[in-house]
Design a protein around this nucleic acid. Structure first.
Ligand SMILES: [Zn+2]
Ligand SMILES: [Zn+2]
Ligand SMILES: [Zn+2]
Ligand SMILES: [Zn+2]
Lengths: 163, 163
DNA sequence: TTCGTTAGCGTAATATCATTACATTTTATT
DNA sequence: AATAAAATGTAATGATATTACGCTAACGAA
């Protein structure tokens, strides 16, 4: 069975975060061109804001940032942007937090699997194909056909555990 | 590895649902007595209403049912009841739906694992200890300590698949 | 290029889900 | 009965998300 991939780990306190954002935007641009989707100025800006932390960010947090850094924007606009980004696989929605988080590997489409720190609200994304498989097998047993998975684990990240 | 348990399957169209509710209430009463928790009239009523379907039910749906079947009740009251029932392990919250569902095996405390039909909104609860284990192992690898898991699979139930 | 169509966005209103704060009542304990 | 703790009533508000409608920019066909 394939090993578990860590798509994005808990970030070290000191890392060049600008390069994370830059890399995400670059991937996004390339993907959108390939697929004939339009990464407009607004959408790109929202993507950047989602990437402002290595963890989930609420829609209204993003709204606030938009209002600070761009002109005035209403909730609807933010949600439209987020919908597009989710559709494109560039970000994930974390249902257990009503929040959104950038995906560091948007090329390979997938449902996210998340480890979310309840203390510092950072999150890591992993991908364990075995879990997907197992869930698929379990589902089949009761005649259920899987379309989408929500896997979110709450707990403490390494740095918060050690306190 | 232990086999996957089906805690509550997709219900057949024709089954005596009253007995489901009755059984759930009976278990709840016994558990609450054992643990010195108080299953008040209000809480029992909310539990019964959660059990009115074999699937997730929203807080405001429950509120409406309360207002129809009991006297006037405000949202707060319903949420308090739901909080108690979750705390007691008698119901689960389905984060991906903002909804609540009765647990058919409240004696053994667990995080729920759900298969949710996007068409008829029924749901089944399973428990695959292997998934828990695997997630725990994955988490350990990145130094994360697990406290709670949200596992919700969206798709089509047997009867909706066959349409 | 111009026309017609579609996708994106601005704006306001509203819907849906959940919590806070404080008063009152019920229950358990002494 | 007196006291304390738990449960409930009530109102207000907060947080999250969607709908509706009109306008403009982008795009493709003629
Ligand atoms: Zn991802
Ligand atoms: Zn942390
Ligand atoms: Zn359960
Ligand atoms: Zn169904």
């Amino acid at each position: 069975m394939a090993a578990t991939r860590v798509i994005s780990d808990f970030s070290s306190k000191k890392h060049n975060h600008k390069s994370c954002v830059k890399s995400a935007v670059k991937k996004a641009e390339s993907i959108c061109i390939d697929r004939g989707m339009r990464l407009t100025r607004l959408r790109r800006k929202i993507l950047e804001l989602v990437w402002s932390r290595h963890g989930p960010l609420g829609a209204y947090d993003i709204l606030q940032l938009m209002n600070k850094e761009e002109g005035k924007v209403l909730p609807n606009t933010v949600y439209r942007g987020l919908d597009f980004l989710i559709e494109a696989g560039l970000i994930h929605r974390l249902d257990s937090m009503n929040a959104f988080m950038g995906c560091a590997d948007p090329v390979s489409r997938h449902s996210g699997q998340f480890l979310i720190c309840r203390s510092c609200e950072s999150a890591a994304e992993i991908h364990d194909a075995g879990i997907e498989q197992t869930l698929g097998r379990d589902a089949k047993r009761v005649g259920f056909s899987v379309e989408q998975q929500t896997i979110e684990v709450l707990g403490l990240c390494p740095s918060c555990s050690s306190d």
